[in-house]
Structures are given as structure tokens and as C-alpha cells.
Write a protein that binds this DNA or RNA. Structure first.
Lengths: 362, 362
DNA sequence: TCCCGAAGTTCGATTTAAATG
DNA sequence: GCATTTAAATCGAACTTCGGG
């Protein structure tokens, strides 16, 4: 009786916001904390507990509104059930869709992402890395491009020996996993598309030399060119500057096309480094009185959201970013659960045809 | 001597990845764990410790590479140093910039955001809410629009009595803080701009009735109209459907304009509900052979990134989203540190003039 | 010996109350 | 009694070991 009345007090306390602990469940159910723990976690020993006991414990836990304290739990098993998500720039539409992919897959699990954004700055990245490590995240998912190549950072990750995966960088070592996109194939598809529409005088926009992707895409272009005997006019090749951050590439595309136009170069198609620079290119073309795609076809790379929202819709090479995100999660889970060695997984490119490219008249 | 050699063993162990605890620092420095804790945290009692002691402890902690275990710490002081960030849809460009704002301000503190994305789904939102609460986040920052109005959810937040702030919803109660945007002012500025350019036959695009913003913006429009004696032709008012999620509004804008055009309505300007629907409107106009802004001016709302990347650049009402994000952080910190009551803070609208609006000829 | 259940230790810190010279 | 330092309790759960029927 007195126990009963104590319990109703407890329930009243909970309603006022007090936290219910396992001990409370134990008291209320009449079992010891040990038994409660075993029952609620379906621990190995739980097979010896009669169903009656287990269900009674579960019931009281339920009615008391018991929720295990994650800190206590993490303290004993040394797992945070959190994964560190490191992005180089959320404002970059490229990141956004990857984040979505990561989040979606993570939601199905009991893990939760701790979000960090490096603002395209290596120092900030490093600080965040330390923070995440201090917080004992169970794994690291890194969306890196410009700054991924900072060796100091990679070494930090390697030394900690923490499950990890790099998204969107060709790099991978014996202790660093990565999801990489087939840039070469993507560029090949892009130029193939333009070529198929009859274009021969194509202007090319190379990315920043610092960026891994640049070389790979250029290889794709060259392999198609040599396959078809297409000549690439060096005068029609412009490069994005290294200093530019991802979001600046709009400006870069704009400037590059103006530069070509001012120099009086003739071309019927422009293959941009990415979607943002393609949009910049379109702006420059329109300002000079040229219509897209009537006077000049433009093709981008990435398939960011804006590519479909602009008019004309931008033909582009789609990176399956959401899938890259979810596969990254799969990869770190493998490492967490089965201590799998690091691997590299590759995803394919896809051509998305919209309205910015058209058959060359004549 | 033997102590010394033990220590070098310890250091060797650290190099192989073993974790250094406070006890290790105590042993190595020759003080008790208590003293170490006091010294490293600059606890009140630290003022009784001689500088000599403190610095020696700090030094050994440093050389041993000691990092406090966050779980143990959280366990005693019942604080996670994490804040829950709840977004209704990361893919929505509206969210992205707010996330940046939140992250930026948070970086300066020792807090870290746990990221969740509701995918515009109330159930998913609720599940995430429970997860975050179970994880004992110290506060909640919620970017909500469509689904914020779900009372069940708000009640959950209220009952938990956890520091919180809602971004982008007019709502606020005695226990829910919010950052709200002056939609009325924004809409006023927009129509004022069009009016100032000479437009009188303006088509309006109302948002979904479910959405708080819709009514506020409409008020802004009407107050300007009555101020200037401008007549609003009911035939030129179209509404976005409720079922549409944020990202669908492109389609909504497109359909609305086609609808007007098919019905043979005449208008020289179109005031969209948001940027995405404005971009949809532009597509519809161009497909019908109308040029923007020559044949029809278009104004958006929000100032998402794509607004500046498209050609013509979209004139729009800018919501200071990054600031809203960082102010949200300020608000929850106030609640965490000084247990301030809930408040509502308002931020102002700003007109951003680009190329999609022009003086009415004649 | 077989269930079933519990006491006690551990995780790594913070904090109170007390002890040392 | 003062200036320093520390033993011991605590946070909440998991797990190992041990005892009673």
C-alpha cells in the first residue's frame, strides 16, 4: 500500500517534468535495476526471464514514461550513436542534396548526424574535426572538394582510426574510404551529347586546377575527342581560377564567356565546368544578344536544383548526389559494425537533357 | 623513477590510440583527480590552487593529450551541449540559408547542432522531435512553415519545457519563442515597387491558405492598394494549392500563369508568392512568347540563391535568412543561460531589384 | 543443476565535505 | 585557523558475478 502511494507520487512528479530513471522503473515494477536493464534491452540474459516479468517491466517503463539516459549509456559502451557530417559549404547546392541523402539513410537507423560546415575554409574544417572527435562521434562523413586535399586534415582522420568516408573526391587511402563520381564518364557524356547535336566548335570551361574533378573531366573530353577525331581549339578553352570558391563559379562562367566573346571567338556550344558556371555563361550570352539554345548551346555539370528552375532549363550531367549520401552512410555502418577495411565505391553519371542545348541548324 | 617509467609507458599507449582519462592526468601529475578537475575547469575552488599547481596540471594534460569525456560530463551536469536543429526540407533553398545562419553562430559557442529534416512530413517531424528529446538536446531550433501549425507537435514542445525557437512562423505562445519575418511589409514593398514602375494591371499569386505567410502578405498588398486607390482585379488573383509542398511551387507558378494566359487575361506584372513560383511563372511567360521584363515584369519573394543565378535575375523581397538563423541561436542561448521567458523577434524585409522588373513603357 | 533475480563494479567526470600540514 | 589538497558520493545505465529456490 505504501509502495503504491509512493508510486503515484512518482507519476505526479513525472508530470511536472522530473526525469524517470531506471531505478524508478525498478522500484515501481518491484524488480531490481539489473533485471529491468536486462529486460528492456533484451540483453543475452533476457532469455532466462519469464515473459511475465519482461512484459510487466516493459509496461511500467511505458507508463512511467521512462527514456534511457543516452549519456549513461554512451559512458559504458563508449558509443555516441552520432555521426559527424562535415560539409564544405551548405550554401553550395551540390552539398544540399548529398546532405539529404545522408540524412535519409541515417533516419532509418538509430544514429543522428552532427552537422558542421567548413565555409570553404580549411582552418574551420580542422576546428570542426577536432570538435567532432572530442565529442566521440562514431564515424565521419565528409563532403569535401576544394579542401579535401589538405594533407594535414587527412592525416588527422587517419591517425584517429575512426570509420569514415569522403564524398566527392577521388582520393582514398588504406584507411580512408570514399564515394566517388565518375567524372570522366560524365564529361564524356556531355561532349557526346553536344557532338551528337552537330556541334563542332565547342568552347570548354576547365575547372580550377586544384580540384580533383578538373583533370578527370578533361580526360573524358579528350578521350571522346580522340575517339571521334574532334579537334579541340586551344583558343576555345578557358579555365576557372583556383581562388574561386564553389559558389563563385557563376561569376567565373560569366567572365569566361565574356572573355571569349570579347576576343571575337566563334563557337556554337559551351561546355561549362559546373551548373553554376553554365548559368553564368548563359547570362553573358544573353547580355551579348545571343539566345540559348538558338545561338549557342550550353551544358552544365552536377544538376543542381536551379538547373531545372531556370529558363531555359539547363541540360546537364547529373551526379546522383542523394545516392552518394546514402551510400556513404552504408559504408560507415559497415565499418562500424563489421570493421570492414576502407573501400572506394563509384557511382555513375547521367545525362539530363533540358532546353539549353539544341541541334545545330544547317 | 618507477613512476617516471610508468608514465613513458602511458605516453606510448596514447600513441597507439588508447584514451587518456583524468585519472591518468592525475597519476602523471602527482595530484588527485579532484585537483585535476578543479584546475582544468577553472572551477570556483581553483582560486585556492597555486598557479604552480594549475600550470603543472595543465601541462601534463596537454602532453598526455587529455580530452575530457563528454558523456561523463553530460551525465553529471545533465547538459548535452547540443541543440536540435529541425528543418522542414533541406532541399528547399529557403532552409539552406537559415541553416547557415544557425551553424555560423553556433560555431562560436561550444554547442553543436544535431540536424534533422522532416521532408515536409508531420509524422517524420514528430519522430525526430522524440529522438532529439531522448537525446537530451539542450534546445530546439525549428524551421517550420507548412507543418508548424500541427498543434500536437507544438504541444509536445511546450510540455517538455525546453528552450526553443520557431523560425518563419507567425506563431508564438507563452512557452514558444519565434523569429518572424515581416511578411506584410515585404508584400507592401513588392507591390510598391511594381506600382512605382507604372504597373496597374498586376496579377497576384496567393500562397496556400494553410500557410501563415499567405494572409500576412495579402494584407500588405491590400493596405498598399487601399493607400493608393489601386484596384485589385479578382480575375487576376490565383492561388497556390494547399497540397503543394514548398518545392512544388515552381509548378504552381507555372500553372497559374498558363491559366491566366489561357483565360485571355491581360496583365503587365506578376507578383508571385515566392521565388520558385516566380521562376515557374517566367517559364510559362517565355513559353507563350512573352519576354521578361519587356512584356511582363515578375517579382518573387524570399531571395533564394537561384534568384540571382537565373537570367534575367529575379527582383524579389529578401528575407534576411542568415540573420534569422543566428538570432534564433541567440534566443535559445538566452533561454538556456538566463532562463528568459519566450519572446518573438521580428526581422525586416528588403527589396532586391534585379532584371525581372522594368518600367512600364508608355 | 537449472532458473531467476540481485548485489556490486565499471564507465569518466563533477562536486561536496572533510582532511592534511 | 589558513592554505591546499583529497576522499567519497553522485550521475544513470550495463555487465559480471554471485546467491537462493
Amino acid at each position: 500500500m505504501s509502495i503504491q502511494s509512493k508510486e503515484s507520487v512518482k507519476v505526479a512528479i513525472r508530470a511536472t517534468g522530473k526525469i524517470v530513471t531506471m531505478k524508478d522503473v525498478a522500484r515501481a515494477s518491484g524488480f531490481s535495476p539489473t533485471t529491468v536493464s536486462i529486460a528492456l534491452n533484451d540483453a543475452p540474459l533476457a532469455r532466462f526471464l519469464p515473459e511475465e516479468t519482461k512484459s510487466r517491466i516493459r509496461l511500467t517503463a511505458e507508463t512511467l514514461g521512462y527514456r534511457p539516459n543516452p549519456f549513461a549509456r554512451s559512458l559504458v559502451n563508449q558509443k555516441s550513436q552520432m555521426i559527424g557530417l562535415m560539409v564544405f559549404d551548405v550554401m553550395d547546392p551540390y552539398c544540399t542534396r548529398i546532405v539529404r541523402g545522408v540524412e535519409s539513410r541515417l533516419f532509418e537507423s538509430s544514429y543522428v548526424p552532427v552537422f558542421t560546415d567548413a565555409h570553404n575554409d580549411a582552418d574551420r574544417f580542422e576546428q570542426y574535426l577536432k570538435m567532432l572527435l572530442d565529442r566521440r562521434v562514431d564515424a565521419l562523413i565528409i563532403i569535401a572538394n576544394w579542401l579535401a586535399l589538405n594533407n594535414k586534415i587527412l592525416e588527422m582522420v587517419e591517425r584517429r582510426d575512426i570509420p569514415n568516408v569522403l564524398i566527392g573526391s577521388g582520393l582514398s587511402t588504406s584507411s580512408i574510404s570514399s564515394i566517388s563520381f565518375d567524372n570522366e564518364e560524365g564529361a564524356f557524356l556531355a561532349i557526346q551529347h553536344l557532338y551528337g547535336l552537330g556541334h563542332r566548335k565547342i568552347a570548354f570551361h576547365r575547372g580550377p586546377s586544384k580540384l580533383w574533378d578538373t583533370a578527370a573531366r578533361w580526360n573524358g573530353i579528350q578521350s571522346f575527342a580522340s575517339l571521334k577525331g574532334l579537334e579541340i581549339d586551344p583558343d576555345l578553352v578557358v579555365s576557372l581560377r583556383d581562388s574561386e570558391t564553389s559558389i563563385d563559379s557563376f561569376e567565373g562562367g560569366y567572365r569566361s564567356v565574356r572573355q571569349l566573346l570579347n576576343a571575337g571567338k566563334e563557337f556554337t556550344a559551351f561546355m561549362a565546368f559546373d551548373d553554376l558556371s553554365a548559368l553564368g555563361a548563359i547570362r553573358a550570352l544573353k547580355e551579348s544578344g545571343r539566345e540559348v539554345p538558338e545561338d549557342c548551346s550550353v551544358i552544365g555539370f552536377d544538376d543542381i536544383p536551379a538547373a531545372s528552375f531556370c529558363t531555359p532549363g539547363l541540360t546537364t550531367i547529373r551526379q546522383p548526389m542523394e545516392r552518394m549520401g546514402s551510400e556513404a552512410v552504408d559504408l560507415v555502418f559497415q565499418q562500424i559494425h563489421q570493421t570492414t577495411p576502407s573501400v572506394t565505391r563509384n557511382v555513375n553519371a547521367e545525362l539530363v537533357i533540358r532546353q539549353s542545348t539544341a541541334q545545330l541548324p544547317g
